[in-house]
Every structure is written in C-alpha cells, then in structure tokens.
Nucleic acid binder design. Structure first.
Length: 262
DNA sequence: ACCTAAACCTGGGCGC
DNA sequence: TGCGCCCAGGTTTAGG
C-alpha cells in the first residue's frame, strides 16, 4: 500500500472534498472489502478525515467512523469509473461518489465505534508524536536489523518498504545493522532522514510505482525521486562508484549502497 | 523472544 | 503466443 505519505496525500485531498457530504448509499461489490453494517453509515454526514499511520479514518455525524486500510493495491477515487477491481462505491447525496478499487482484495473498510480499537496497536507516528528520546529507546531495546524495526507498525507506525529503504540510505546506515548498535549521533540523524523522506513523499503526492493513485486518479511523483528503492544495479547517487544492491530482509526486498551504507 | 514461510489475492513481467 | 515462475508499497498467523 500506500505508506504514510500516500495516505496523507489522500487525507489532505479528502478533507477538502468530502467533509460535509451525506452518504446516500453504499454499493458493496466484494463482500470481503467492507466489514460492518452499511445501514449504520447510510444517511450520515462526513464530519472529518483523519490519518493514523497508514490507516485513513472518515468520521461520521453519528460518532461512528469508517477505518480504511488500502494494503497493497487499494485506491480511493472521487467520481472514478467503476471497473473489475472496484469493490465498494459510496454515493453522496450531492451526486458525487467515491469508489474503492483493490485489485488484490487485501484492503478493507471497517465500520468502527471507537477508532482506538484499531489505533491502540500502533506505535508513534514519525511526523507526529515520535520524539528523539522515544526513537532512541525503541532502537536500543531491539537487536533486530534496524530496517525491520522501522517497518514494525507496533513500534513506529506508518513507514513501509519504500521509505524505510530510502531513509536508511540518506542516514548512511546499513539496513542489516542491529538497532541497538546504532550510535546516539546516528539515531538523531536517522530520525531526521526518516522525517525528510516522509515529508518529501507527501510533497510529491506519494509514490505511484505500482497501484497508488490520488483522489483524482492521478499518479504521485515520489518514484521519480527514489534514492535506492527499486534501483537495483543502478549507480549510487552519491557518485561513490558503487551500484545499488538488493537483498532480502524479513522477507522483503531491501535496497542499499554497499559502499555508502557499510 | 527470535526467525522464516505461508497465507490472504490478482496480475505484470520475464525466461524459455 | 503461451506457460510457468517470480515479484509486488502490507499484515497476520503458524511453526520451528
């Protein structure tokens, strides 16, 4: 999916576009994609849109919320044209509609009363409540490779494979380095680099190497600015003379410069 | 507590 | 063209 910057891109757009609208009806084309009772949602007004890590939350006038996780291939498109991967369609009373596409059917939309039932499992968000002191404590408490920790949603929430790889490159830290072996000075640098790649991701309106599209169906541009992600065999941008290598870590593709990230 | 592999799904890309 | 295999931005669960 969509990692933090992609979901934030959607939140910013949805806040402008759907707050105040009333949900007139919901078409559920794939039952797995919508968890809960749609009758609790129909007729309710949208009063706000929030983001918790990679989860988008649409708050309704009856104090219920819709929690949305796009996982690998989910899309939310305003007035998009439904097709074979369209799973859910929200019709608003003003004639607009919001369609949820999801090729792989991993994503979900849940009707929830208290959003904390979902968010209490999440660690701090690097662009919100994650402080350097807390980041330091998290890293020092684990012997796991640092990249796995960055992607552990219960420890640090919102970071996925793209931004974990690129943050480690910027910080010149090897993805395999044990988290508790990172020096104090490098911890501060890593947090700054993590925040930079996430903020830049938002600035580019997300990474659309694969499925991600914004609310208008447009691609983001972050993939044009990757440092190491998906750049196997290409020259390191630091002109160090080395090329980007790919290894597997925790079952996920991991990209790094063997010279700059020793 | 650690790790790995598989599972949930579909489809694009590549080698043969 | 076509088949089989590998891969994919995520998360959970099962097993060692």
């Amino acid at each position: 999916m969509p990692e933090l910057p992609e979901v934030e891109t959607l939140r910013l757009q949805l806040s402008q576009l759907i707050v105040g609208k009333k949900i007139k009806s919901i078409d559920i084309l794939t039952t797995k994609s919508f968890i809960g009772n749609k009758r609790q949602v129909i007729g309710k007004k949208i009063i706000g849109v929030r983001r918790f890590a990679k989860i988008l939350v649409i708050d309704l006038s009856n104090s219920l919320s819709l929690a949305i996780h796009l996982k690998m291939s989910g899309q939310l498109i305003l007035n998009g044209i439904p097709h074979k991967h369209t799973r859910v369609i929200f019709q608003f009373s003003d004639g607009n509609k919001l369609i949820f596409n999801d090729q792989r059917i991993f994503g979900w939309i849940k009707v929830v009363g208290d959003i904390r039932s979902i968010t209490n499992k999440l660690g701090p968000d690097p662009l919100k409540e994650l402080t350097i002191a807390r980041f330091s404590t998290i890293l020092k408490s684990s012997k796991k490779p640092v990249k796995l920790l960055l992607m552990d949603q219960g420890k640090i929430a919102g970071v996925g494979n793209i931004y974990a790889n690129d943050a480690l490159f910027l910080a010149k830290i090897n993805p395999k380095r044990k988290a508790n072996e990172i020096k104090e000075g490098s911890i501060a640098i890593l947090l700054n680099c993590l925040r930079k790649v996430l903020k830049d991701g938002i600035k580019w309106k997300g990474a659309s190497k694969n499925h991600f599209r914004d609310i208008y169906g447009q691609k983001g541009k972050a993939q044009e600015h990757f440092y190491v992600y998906a750049r196997t065999g290409e020259k390191c941008i630091n002109n160090c003379g080395s090329v980007i290598q790919k290894i597997t870590l925790g079952g996920r593709g991991t990209f790094f410069c063997p010279k700059c990230q020793s």
